[in-house]
């Protein structure tokens, strides 16, 4: 028996919005520790890694490890039926081929449930090696989304360059070039509004605007985003989901021919 009750169905909806551009379907792995999802997009350019801790749920019970393969467009349809203040309870029997979502309004005046068919997905689990990153940049998630959106107008790629002076996002295209530089801020009492740079080595890497834009769909989940960069390894874009877990995206860089 699997049962997980989340106080805010809106949070799960935001998670779905943040991954459904990249993935058509995905396996949710449920264990005592919580719910995890790890999947590459079809082109094998990006990887989504979601971790929702069991203690972030109001109620969590997982008698046996369970993998639930779901079509994310179908799952979005289900969550479109929930109210913004609803709680959601996710239930599945062991070895079931369906999962049930129950939405409850705050005062119990409306309760709805939706049963969805599960899919058998042949997904491999990947081990992600520990990396000593050259630069770790924390910045407001809204600022990152704004920069990616602005620069995407001009080119297909964004170069992220980090030195001890700050971080620079650059693009070039047919009509010209664009650069946005952010200096480290000293607003330490408001960490989620600050730009914090932890640099071991300067680094400069090129990434696809299209993928970065998809990652910024996670902006409503967190005020802050962390970018971890190192030569010859994927970029990590990490959003902490308050009291619940995290959503990380890995993106292979573009390389000179």
């Amino acid at each position: 028996m699997f049962e997980a009750r989340l106080a805010s169905s809106a949070t799960f909806k935001k998670v779905l919005d943040a991954i459904k551009d990249l993935l058509n379907e995905a396996s949710f792995d449920c264990s005592d520790a919580g719910i995890q999802l790890q999947a590459m997009d079809n082109s094998h350019v990006s990887l989504v890694s979601l971790n929702l801790k069991s203690d972030g749920f109001e109620k969590y019970r997982c008698d046996r490890n369970l993998t639930m393969g779901m079509n994310l467009a179908s799952l979005s349809k289900v969550f479109r039926c929930s109210g913004s203040d609803d709680t959601v309870t996710i239930k599945a029997q062991d070895d079931a081929d369906t999962v049930t979502f129950m939405f409850e309004a705050k005062k119990q005046e409306k309760i709805s449930d939706y049963e969805m068919k599960l899919m058998n997905l042949d997904q491999e689990h990947l081990g992600i090696p520990e990396t000593e990153f050259s630069c770790i940049i924390k910045l407001p998630s809204g600022e990152f989304a704004r920069i990616v959106r602005d620069l995407s107008q001009f080119g297909e790629s964004i170069v992220i360059s980090c030195t001890k002076e700050g971080v620079k996002f650059s693009t070039q295209g047919d009509i010209g070039t664009g650069n946005v530089k952010l200096a480290q801020t000293n607003n330490f009492d408001k960490e989620d509004q600050s730009v914090i740079i932890d640099m071991q080595e300067p680094v400069s890497l090129t990434f696809s605007c299209e993928y970065l834009n998809s990652f910024t769909k996670a902006t409503p989940l967190s005020n802050q985003v962390t970018l971890s960069l190192c030569d010859n390894v994927p970029l990590v874009v990490e959003y902490q989901i308050p009291d619940l877990g995290h959503l990380k995206y890995y993106l292979a860089p573009k390389i000179e021919e």
Partner: peptide, 14 residues
């Protein structure tokens, strides 16, 4: 010009 690298090879299949 640059080409898009893929993630294969960065991670190990468990």
């Amino acid at each position: 010009t640059s080409t898009q690298a893929r993630l294969d090879g960065f991670f190990t299949v468990l």
